[in-house]
Amino acid sequence: MLKAQASLVAQGRLLKLALRAALVGVLVATLIGSLYWVLSQSYTFRWNLALQQLPKFNEGLWITLQASGIGMVLGLALGLVVALLRLSPLALLRDMGTLYVHTLRNIPFLVFVIFTYFGIARAVLPPASNVVLFGWDIDDRLFWGALALSLFEASFISEIFRAGIQSIHKTQQEAARSLGMSYLQAMRYVVLPQAFRVILPPMTGELIALVKESALLLVISLPELTLTAKQLSSQRPLQFEFYTILAGYYLMITVPLSAISHLLEHKLSIHKRGGAT
């Protein structure tokens, strides 16, 4: 008897949710529809022509993914190093780390990219259009772009690492050291594994931000997604379509990442004691 009632109620709730989703869908469709109609009075939309350019967008997507990927990996590595610097007992190392973090956090990424590429790569260093790294020929824009991305994000990532590590009570470190472990061993076996849970949610958020920042690499003419859209719009007068497609591409990357990060947060917070943030 009870099971039947429960399933009925579950069906009822599902129905309610479906109805709400449908209502919102209708609302959004009406809004966008009317906006579209108003705009089309003074602008002819030509989606078919725009959608023909999807292959170009995909090329841009590939570059974006490359830059973001390298940026993420390098950024995580550098971030960890800087975090350890900031936690080091040597004041000089700590200060260098602090200076690094505070300098990069307080300027726009755009300015940093411009500074790195035009200020350093093209001005101070001898010019080279291709960077040869371990026998691979990397376009120097991709190289410097990914480098700038990782250097910049490392400052934010290091803060997340640092806060996470510091949130693990000092007594854990003390207990580990009392067993005879070295500083690095204590980190590796005791502190970092526990800090991992604390670090993961904000870290995924930062990585999503990294992907979004990669859009700014267009300023050094790296043919990633956004530059592709810009170039296409200057060739053909279909700006609205191209930029909407661009937005769609980014949402395609970031929304799933966001969803994963929400899921992770949820799963991890169940195990936390009491008050979640």
Partner: peptide, 24 residues
């Protein structure tokens, strides 16, 4: 909220300026 938070600021800027700005 979820749409704009998941887009880069630059893309939003471009969308508004070149997308809407040319029409309006």
């Amino acid at each position: 909220v979820h749409t704009f938070r998941n887009l880069p600021a630059l893309v939003v800027l471009l969308l508004f300026f070149f997308g809407l700005g040319q029409i309006i």
